[in-house]
Simulated assay, not measured.
Amino acid sequence: MPPRPIRLPSLDALLAFEAVARAGSFEAAADELALTASAVAKRVAGLEERLDQPLFLRQPARGLTLTPAGHEYLPQVRQALALLQAMPLHQRNPAVRERLRVSSTPTFARQLLVPALPGFTAAHPQVELELTLSVPLLAEGDAGADVEIRHGAVPEDLSAAQVLLHDRLTPLAAPALLARHAPLTQPADLLSLPLLRTPLQPWSPWLRAAGLADAAEPDEGPRFVDLGLTLAAALAGQGVALARLSLARHELADGRLVQPFPLTVPAERAYGLVCHRPSPAAEAFAGWLQAHCRAVEAENSSAAP
């Protein structure tokens, strides 16, 4: 004689039966399984039809109670479900993390980006951000970066839509340096102090705005090929830096640097965001960074003397 066919029930039916037996009603099991009570009842009824015997007694006064067959069947079903749930392939994988490689100029990363990163991580825990540094003057970036924070001219290196900060420049100095010299009463008095120099930011825009167009660019002292190094030299009292308010806002707030004159001029070069590999993570980072930079601009405007 041919072998008797095996009458395997569906897994959904077994899950419904186990949930109803444990919860005591179709309604309670439906809440657990995110189904309707009628859907759970149909699954249990289909299971009973396949087994050709009732598993529950449906009594209006007492609700649902297991039949003897149901009592015998329940531990077998639970054992089978436990075996299925224990299989590694059936276990839910952890949330997939999306990796995002961001290349940034050093000073922007240290002064603006890194201090604010906990906010991005908290808002986007699924993004694994990797931060690398570039060298702006040498145009040495990270070829593998998904997103690049670039310091460049608009529109040659950046489009208007890519600009992150509309920054302003002003002389900044350490209190100790100013204490060693006569009080500064007018912008021309700055010329008696050592002016720090960097090819990334000439003094000429601010000098012109201050009525000192004939003043020459400083040609003595170290030449810093990094805006962060220029700030570090100013903090050490080595000279006056023509600095971006956005990069020095923490040092200004705690008094380590002071602004001798309220005059500021727009920066001719801007920080911008360039996306090389679009993705949901890149879009999330861009939106967060743009909002952060807008907040920094508003903070600088409110703090302006």
Rank of each mutant, 00 (worst) to 15 (best):
P2Q: 04
P5V: 03
P5Y: 03
I6N: 05
L8A: 03
P9M: 10
A13L: 03
L14H: 04
A16E: 09
V20H: 03
R22P: 03
A23L: 12
A23N: 10
G24H: 15
A28F: 15
A30D: 07
D31N: 13
A34M: 09
A37H: 07
S38M: 10
A41F: 10
R43L: 15
G46N: 11
D52C: 00
D52P: 00
L57V: 11
Q59V: 10
P60M: 05
R62P: 00
L66K: 14
A69Q: 10
H71M: 11
L74H: 03
L83G: 10
L84A: 12
A86T: 11
Q91N: 03
R99N: 04
R101Q: 03
R101F: 00
S103P: 00
R110W: 06
R110G: 00
Q111K: 08
P115H: 07
E130R: 05
E130W: 02
S134V: 05
A139L: 14
E140Q: 13
E140V: 05
D146T: 00
V147R: 02
R150Y: 07
G152T: 05
A153M: 07
V154R: 05
A160N: 05
A160T: 10
A161W: 13
Q162H: 08
L164Q: 03
D167P: 01
A173H: 08
A173P: 01
L177Y: 06
A179C: 13
T185Q: 06
Q186C: 05
P187K: 06
P187I: 08
L193V: 03
L196W: 01
P199R: 07
S204H: 11
P205R: 08
L207D: 02
G211I: 12
A216H: 01
A216L: 01
E220H: 08
F224C: 01
G228D: 12
G228R: 13
Q238E: 15
V240Q: 13
L242F: 14
R244E: 14
L247T: 11
Q259P: 11
L263Q: 15
T264Y: 11
A270V: 08
G272N: 14
S279D: 10
A281K: 11
E283G: 04
A284V: 09
F285E: 12
G287H: 11
W288T: 07
R294H: 11
V296M: 08
A298T: 04
S301F: 06
S302V: 06
